[in-house]
């Protein structure tokens, strides 16, 4: 990749990141949707935005990446789901029974 392409990658990433963030603020600011729905939209936007950061700023690709990097990211994601999800599940379960 040459210099111009690389710079464009950062700028595209930046624009995408803004495009994924600003609408959520707008939705909140003008109360365009019920709050619960905004949270869902924000959640999806956040997931996409994390992918954008990984792709354009951290240069993680599915192909051509050193294998252990990808394994590590997937393993961390698995553990975050296990630990975070497990925690919320257990504590909610407890709260319901108290």
């Amino acid at each position: 990749m040459n210099r111009r392409q690389e710079r464009r990658s950062y700028i595209v990433g930046y624009v995408l990141a803004l495009a994924l963030t600003l609408p959520v603020f707008a939705l909140l600011a003008f109360d365009l949707l019920p709050r619960r729905q905004i949270l869902w939209i924000a959640g999806v936007a956040a997931a996409v935005q994390i992918a954008v950061h990984f792709r354009f700023f951290l240069h993680i690709r599915l192909k051509g990446q050193t294998r252990e990097d990808l394994q590590l990211i997937l393993f961390t994601t698995l553990l975050l789901i296990l630990m975070g999800g497990g925690t919320i599940w257990i504590m909610t379960n407890l709260a319901h029974r108290m």
Binding site: L79, L82, M83, G86, W89, I90, N93, L94, R97, M98
Partner: peptide, 18 residues
């Protein structure tokens, strides 16, 4: 080893299914 931590506090009061 990351999927079993609850067995240290089975008696805390969560449901039997969990």
């Amino acid at each position: 080893s990351f999927t079993v931590w609850v067995h240290h506090f089975f008696t805390m009061g969560q449901s039997a299914d969990l």
